[in-house]
Design a protein around this nucleic acid. Structure first.
Length: 777
DNA sequence: AAAAAAC
């Protein structure tokens, strides 16, 4: 890089530098010459007194300017009048203009004041350079300061303005208070353009105002006549390509099928529900649509039927033993016997007698300890002994999720049937038809999720005034913020003096409000502690690094046997399930954002074992029973120790073994330690990496080596299957596979609808073994 | 703070 040439004052000091010849006047262009070269005119100096006089206080300036505009003598002094400034440039000066086409005559007054006036120009520059100590016409002296032996400028009184105290003061008043305010009217409304103070007034081009003319003035006969379509020979519009946009194929993107991903159904999966505001069409009851037909046999609609236990022989039942000793009618005992249920569980033994006696009961029993029968048997017993009401329900069971409602109904319906009581399932996501018809026909017991029951209540389809027993399953959950309004609505619409039974594995003070308002002298039975004291359950906290989480999740999910993975959000469930399939593990997501049909199918596939890994939100955390779930993996930590216990309770049910493993990321350690401590889990976190032997030992994890699972393959497994129809494979297999003793009364009551609908639970004994959903006793 | 519960 070349050394920069020294210049200026530095240059003088640079060694060996000879100052250029400094003789004679500096060769400056005249302003005309400058203008011809496209330069601005050189600034002229004006004495300070004058500048100060002009004043910088705004009002002064305004006055000065308006004076400028009005004072013709002043204009004359400058050599022109405002009026001719634009249109009649002075002819006595050469017609030169700068690069922007401006010439001095068109310069604005402000320019004039800057010293570009013709007078200055005439008398100004040129001539010889001033001698030392002699001022030139700009007041400059032709020497250097050091030669003049002066102090530097900032020390002198004539230091630059920004350093002096006599700087003009800003007018800080808001514009509308200032005198130099602008004309606020819109441009078109001002008399003249640029009528701001200090600017030359310029005539504004006046457009003649556009007149509104009445439409009638355009007479139809003024228009050229359009040939008729036949003459034009073109096809009607809907056949042509210029048909309106919404009918064409190039319609805007959001109307097309390849609209952006976030709006497409595929993104969330075929069965995903979109919120109503995002859907193209709101779902409506449409009798033409298969799933809306009242007698739908679509498995998606989960037309639900009770299992028939067949003939019940109560002769062999011994008094004073087992359930009979608790006051349960003999015929029920026999029915239970037939299902292999003989000895009551502790929670049942504790609560049944009190509940049959009609007392309000708070029951707490560990997960999988048989709470359903704990409240179900006394409810059935009391209702069967009461007087009939002529069709209005006398028993009400409220549960927090549809799956749980289904499971609960599956457990209780066969027993109700043996007592000739009608039990119906009321839950969202299923057709209205069967539910409405059930109430028309008469119902004794309702197992329901709150939303749909309130819906039917508002429709006037349900009369809850005859309910004598009300049950809240998972009562602590039903008492939480989101459920509370619905629950109180329903509790308000049943008789105040009825019996209330509240059950949960984690019954605590959350239910206090309900207890205080709706229960009378309740008796509390807590058979177990609310700690994770299930002896067959093994707990593990897996300390995992964030970048290992997916791999470890996949390795654990790749184990042998059925596993339930819990995640925090619906999208998380989708994502994890997708990732697992990508890693070659057949997994399906279950959450409340799916259609009921999809929820049902993925659960059924899980039950069958075709999809051995279920990735679920907390929708599956409570109450749901699947046999042989040997591992629960908490991919995301639970929100509370209660959630932990309920999630963990999906395994190690009814005496089986099970492992509960929780992935703990570094930032989750404290929270998880607290939650585990509250849940009574006393284990040290185990740091693990993918592929660790320890991981295999504790959870049975295996490194994933299979090829990714194609979506189509997964889809096939959870595809809707026609349960009904003529000789559908499932229906045929279902009936034929039944044990001889269970054959027979194929469908009573509202099961006339076909009976082939897919259901949860214990109707699938045809498969043999103890796979699948089992009733929670 | 998410999920669940009705269309």
């Amino acid at each position: 890089m070349p050394r920069p040439t020294p210049h200026g004052r530095k240059a003088a000091k640079a060694p060996g530098f000879k100052p250029a010849k400094k003789a004679g006047p500096k060769n400056r262009w005249s302003n005309e010459q400058r203008a011809a070269q496209g330069h601005k005119p050189r600034k002229a100096w004006e004495p300070r007194e004058e500048r100060q006089d002009r004043g910088y206080r705004s009002d002064d300036r305004r006055d000065q300017r308006s004076d400028d505009r009005r004072d013709f003598r002043a204009d004359d002094r400058r050599g022109f009048r405002a009026d001719d400034r634009r249109d009649a440039p002075r002819t006595d000066s050469p017609r030169t203009s700068d690069s922007r086409g401006r010439n001095f005559e068109s310069a604005r007054p402000s320019d004039e004041r800057r010293g570009y006036s013709s007078e200055r120009r005439e008398g100004g520059f040129g001539g010889r350079a001033p001698r030392k100590f002699e001022r030139d016409d700009r007041g400059h002296r032709g020497d250097r300061r050091d030669e003049r032996n002066e102090r530097p400028r900032f020390e002198r009184d004539d230091k630059p303005r920004f350093q002096r105290d006599d700087r003009p003061r800003r007018d800080d008043r808001p514009r509308f208070e200032r005198d130099d305010r602008r004309d606020d009217r819109p441009r078109f409304d001002r008399e003249e353009r640029g009528a701001r103070p200090g600017y030359a007034s310029r005539p504004v081009r006046q457009e003649p105002p556009t007149r509104w003319e009445p439409r009638a003035e355009r007479k139809p006969w003024d228009r050229p006549e359009r040939p008729r379509r036949e003459e034009r020979g073109d096809r009607p519009r809907f056949e042509r390509d210029d048909k309106p946009r919404f009918e064409r194929d190039d319609k805007p993107r959001f109307q097309r099928d390849d609209k952006p991903r976030f709006d497409r159904d595929e993104r969330r999966g075929r069965d995903e529900r979109r919120p109503a505001w995002g859907r193209d069409e709101k779902p409506r009851f449409n009798p033409e649509r298969r799933e809306d037909r009242p007698f739908s046999e679509d498995p998606d609609q989960m037309s639900w039927t009770a299992t028939d236990l067949g003939e019940i022989d109560e002769t062999g039942v011994e008094e004073g033993q087992g359930f009979a000793a608790l006051g349960v009618p003999k015929i029920i005992v026999a029915a239970l016997d037939k299902q292999g249920i003989t000895a009551p569980f502790p929670i049942q033994a504790a609560t049944i007698p009190d509940a049959i006696a009609g007392r309000d009961v708070l029951g707490r029993g560990q997960t999988g300890s048989g709470k359903t029968l704990g409240f179900g048997l006394p409810m059935l017993t009391r209702i069967s002994q009461a007087d009939p009401t002529g069709g209005a329900p006398r028993g009400l069971v409220l549960v927090p999720t549809r799956e749980l409602a289904l499971q609960c109904a599956d457990v209780l319906a066969p027993l109700a049937k043996t007592l000739r009581l009608d039990l119906t399932l009321i839950a969202g996501g299923m057709g209205y038809g069967p539910q409405l018809r059930a109430f028309e026909r008469g119902v004794d017991i309702v197992v329901a999720t709150p939303g749909r029951l309130i819906d039917l209540l508002e429709q006037g389809a349900v009369d809850l005034s005859q309910v004598m027993v009300t049950v809240l399953d998972e009562a602590d959950h039903m008492a939480d913020l989101g459920f509370m309004p619905a629950v109180t609505t329903l509790l308000d619409s049943v008789p105040a003096d009825g019996q209330r039974l509240l059950f949960s594995a984690t019954l605590d003070h959350a239910v206090d409000r309900i207890v205080k308002k709706y229960l009378h002298d309740p008796v509390t039975h807590q058979v177990d502690t609310d700690r994770a004291s299930v002896s067959t359950m093994e707990h593990q906290l897996l300390q995992v690094l964030p970048h290992d989480k997916n791999a470890i999740t996949a390795e654990i999910a790749n184990r042998k046997g059925r596993s339930v993975l819990f995640v925090r959000t619906q999208m998380g469930a989708n994502r994890v399930a997708e990732q697992l399939r990508g890693a070659g593990v057949m997994a399906g997501a279950l959450h409340g954002g799916l259609t009921q049909g999809a929820r049902t199918r993925i659960l059924a596939a899980f039950k069958e074992g075709t999809v051995p890994v279920l990735v679920a939100t907390d929708v599956a955390a409570r109450g749901i029973h699947v046999d042989d779930v040997s591992l629960v993996l908490e991919v995301d930590p639970p929100m509370s120790s209660k959630d932990y216990l309920h999630r963990a309770g999906r395994t190690a049910r009814a005496g089986e073994k099970g492992v509960v493993a929780s992935i703990v990321l570094p930032h989750q350690r404290k929270t998880m330690a607290r939650i585990a401590g509250q849940a009574g889990v006393k284990v040290d976190p185990l740091p693990v990496r993918p592929g660790d032997e320890k991981l295999h030992e504790t959870t049975g994890a295996r490194v994933c080596e299979s090829a990714p699972i194609e979506e189509a393959e997964y889809e096939r497994l959870i595809a809707p299957r026609r349960g009904g129809g003529k000789g559908g494979p499932r229906q045929g297999g279902y009936k034929g596979g039944r044990g001889g003793g269970y054959r027979g009364q194929g469908g009573g009551g509202y099961r006339g609808q076909g009976g082939g609908g897919r259901r949860f639970g214990n109707d699938r004994g045809d498969r043999g073994g103890n796979q699948g959903w089992r009733r929670e006793r």
